[in-house]
Amino acid sequence: MSRADVVPQSYATGEQALRKPSPLWTFGLLRNELMTTLRRWRTLALLGVLAAVPILVGIAVKIETSDGSPGGGHGSGGGGGGPAFIAQITNNGLFLVFTALAATLPFFLPMAVGVVAGDAIAGEANAGTLRYLLVAPAGRTRLLLTKYATTMAFCLLATLVVATSALAVGALLFPLGDLTTISGTRIGFADGLGRALLIALVVAASLTGIAALGLFVSTLTNSGIAAMATTVGLLITVQILDQIPQLHAIQPYFFSHYWLSFADLMRDPVYYDELVKNLGLQALYAAVFGSAAWARFTTKDVTA
């Protein structure tokens, strides 16, 4: 870099030498990237859909139970008739948070993340803005890290939107109070709220695998739509394969296999086994596909 440092003066033509890059500039880029993502109409629409799911579930449960019959449809309990915890919503609105997360995690949340991750590089390439970011020069590795950080921030935001919307709807339509864990013990409302937040964080972390996968797909093409469709297609394929019993040998390696393990946080004491497996698997996906995305993006010819 010593050669590089001399450059600003070498052709000096009366202009002042350009200042050295601040070590914090990456955060400026990250902040700009976050704001840009949030100002996209598409991002707002996705968040709107996610916010609507708990409202629909809440209203449906309210209507279903307004005649005094127990929630959960046919009284078959939490697991059988619908998403987990749906039977308890009428007793405690806080359970709508868990139900909404359980309902959106298999498809809505990862689909939203897949759209944002798939669009990350390919969308910029499609619009031609990628070449201007690169000659700015944003630096390929930094741009990729910024994109991944933004996608992860979106995972967290999307999860919190679902949880917050569910909490608000639950508080409006149903009573709040102490709650009963899956293990049958009772915990206070504050403790329940804490666990809800913890669950939201775990759900957000569960999405880092597909975020990395989507980012990798995004480096392969110059079409944002193609990258989004491929990522969401992979999600659906994996979700289907995860239901086929004959594939049980490879199912533990699917990024979605342990997703619903977040329910174990509602046990007392908490059962960590599958939670740890889930987070480990997400870290593995992030490492593998993050490296693949880096290898691809840093050597790719930008022709768009």
Binding site: N32, R39, R40, A127, T129
Partner: peptide, 21 residues
Amino acid sequence: ALYGFLSGRDNLLRYDAADPV
């Protein structure tokens, strides 16, 4: 190549934010 959903000024702010110096 521009971000259509951003104003002209915000487009430039974004490109400038991508410049480390």
